[in-house]
């Protein structure tokens, strides 16, 4: 199956938040009471009931003016997904499209994915004791539709299609934009399935890691310690067996004491 990619061109995003709402509608995510904290951005962060969020950010343009930037923040759907690596229950898994699906029924609320994700995407829902995140509308894409957010986007900032085609478009657009523009997503964690076209350097954007990767601690845990502990466990099991057979049990009995025989049983 061809890998699918959601392409997000920040230069075309107007921050209308149709994507944020369409996501809630398709996935039937309830609204929660919020308050204006001095910004249009609301809710203030991704939440169990907010799987994609437009981040509003103002930066100086260097000429006394201002730039107002909008970023559609949601699961990046990594190929080498830390969340999938750590998920104990298989709730998080890769689909045939390369996206990271999430099966809430399987989730045990262990929150390991939350700390593993280099993009800080999964959110814990204490009411359900489960996590939640964007699954790129698997129910839609598996039926030949684009994700709800893409469907709702009026400007074409969000697009959806085959990976090769989307990457081609992304590089073409980045080239058109020139300057600091770049394609973000294809060069790390095995390639993400949400690809950004960033008009500015990645470091300019709030909460966007410059060099995201599967954390060393997760590699240490999953790639080293897990096999090692299996090895060690197996080792002692085998070792004990061989010890018993070759070396034999320790003789703790005495001629003077019968009880030892029974005690040893």
């Amino acid at each position: 199956m061809t890998e699918k990619v959601k392409l997000y061109d920040l230069s075309k995003c107007t921050g209308c938040r149709a994507c944020q709402l369409a996501c809630k509608q398709w996935n039937q995510l309830p609204a929660k009471q919020t308050h204006n904290m001095g910004t249009y951005q609301n809710p203030s962060d991704l939440q169990p009931n907010t799987w994609n969020l437009i981040r509003f950010q103002e930066v100086s343009d260097g000429n006394g003016g201002v730039k107002w930037m909008f970023r559609h923040d949601a699961c990046m759907h990594c190929t080498d997904a830390a969340c999938v690596r750590v998920c104990p229950s298989g709730a998080l898994s890769h689909t045939k499209y390369g996206t990271v699906a999430f099966d809430q029924a399987k989730c045990i609320g262990c929150k390991e994915c939350i700390s593993a994700c280099p993009f800080e995407v999964p959110r814990y829902d204490p009411e359900k004791d489960k996590i939640a995140k964007c699954d790129m509308c698997f129910s839609r894409i598996d039926n030949g539709l684009e994700p709800a957010c893409v469907k709702a986007c009026p400007t074409g900032a969000l697009r959806f299609g085959d990976k090769d085609e989307m990457l081609k478009l992304a590089y073409k657009r980045a080239k058109e934009l020139g300057g600091d523009a770049s394609v973000y997503g294809d060069k790390f964690v095995g390639g993400t399935h949400m690809i950004y076209v960033l008009p500015e350097k990645a470091s300019v954007y709030d909460r966007l890691p410059e060099n995201p990767r599967v954390p060393l601690s997760i590699i240490a845990w999953k790639d080293w310690l897990k096999p090692l502990s299996l090895l060690a466990a197996g080792g002692v099991l085998a070792g004990s067996l061989f010890h018993y057979i070759i070396h034999g049990p320790k003789d703790t009995g005495g001629d003077d004491d019968q009880a030892s025989q029974e005690g040893g049983k």
Partner: peptide
């Protein structure tokens, strides 16, 4: 509710 949540 979805709209009020975004601009309360």
């Amino acid at each position: 509710p979805w709209l009020a949540e975004m601009q309360p």
